[in-house]
Simulated scan of single mutants.
Amino acid sequence: MAEQYLTFDIQNERYGILVSQVEVVLEMLPITRVPNSAPSILGVINHRGSVVPVLDLRPIFGITVQDTIMGTSIIIAEMKYANEEVPLGILADQVYEVISIPDEDIEAQPSIGKTIKESFISGIAKVQDQFVILFSLERILNVILKDQLILK
């Protein structure tokens, strides 16, 4: 069986998230910083009348944080948290396409060099001679909470 993933780049690395979790991709919007929030939480935006936290995954992925660049987008995704659907924005340098990846083309992350920080990775796929790192929003949230960072 194959799943569909929305692919995007963060600092020249390709990532994928399940399309079933994606609501919409927005052009960059002004983000309101929330005092004392975690480094991975840039702030909040107003999306369809709701306050939506926006994550910069760079601190979680161990990548140096940089200023936004031309083409930066916010992926609005929905995930379950405390038994309710919660919208979450993800900052992406460039959003590409939806691709279908068969289960047999997805491999587990190599155990060498693996840490708790990488526990968000659900698999790595090779697509047209390029690796796509697949991750789970639920696991990302768990990494944030394990670091004692509170998402409210």
Rank of each mutant, 00 (worst) to 15 (best):
L29V: 02
P35R: 01
L42P: 00
I45W: 12
P39V: 03
I41E: 05
I31N: 05
H47M: 02
R48L: 07
Y15I: 05
N46I: 02
A38S: 15
R48N: 04
L18H: 03
V19D: 06
R48D: 04
V34S: 07
N12I: 12
V19G: 12
I41T: 06
V24A: 07
S40N: 14
V25S: 06
V22D: 05
P39M: 10
R33M: 02
V25Y: 04
S20N: 14
E23R: 13
Q21W: 02
P39K: 09
V19M: 14
M28S: 08
V24T: 13
T32V: 15
Q11R: 15
R33S: 05
V25I: 11
G16C: 04
V25H: 04
P35F: 09
E27V: 12
V25C: 09
N46C: 07
R48Q: 09
T32N: 11
P39F: 11
P30Y: 00
T32W: 02
G16S: 03
I41G: 02
L18S: 11
A38T: 12
G16A: 10
G43Q: 09
T32Q: 13
L42R: 05
Q21I: 03
N12A: 15
S20W: 05
S40I: 06
N36L: 14
E13P: 00
S20A: 15
G43N: 11
R14F: 09
V19K: 10
Q21T: 10
M28I: 04
R33P: 00
V19E: 07
N46V: 04
Y15M: 10
N12V: 10
R33N: 03
R48G: 01
I45C: 14
V24P: 00
V34K: 11
V25D: 06
G16P: 11
L18M: 07
E13T: 04
H47R: 02
R48A: 10
E27I: 07
N36C: 03
V22P: 07
V19Q: 10
H47Q: 03
H47P: 03
T32K: 15
G43M: 09
P30S: 06
N36I: 09
E23G: 09
G43C: 12
V34Q: 15
I45F: 13
L29M: 10
Q11A: 13
A38V: 08
R33Y: 00
E23K: 13
I17R: 13
R48F: 03
Y15P: 08
Q11N: 13
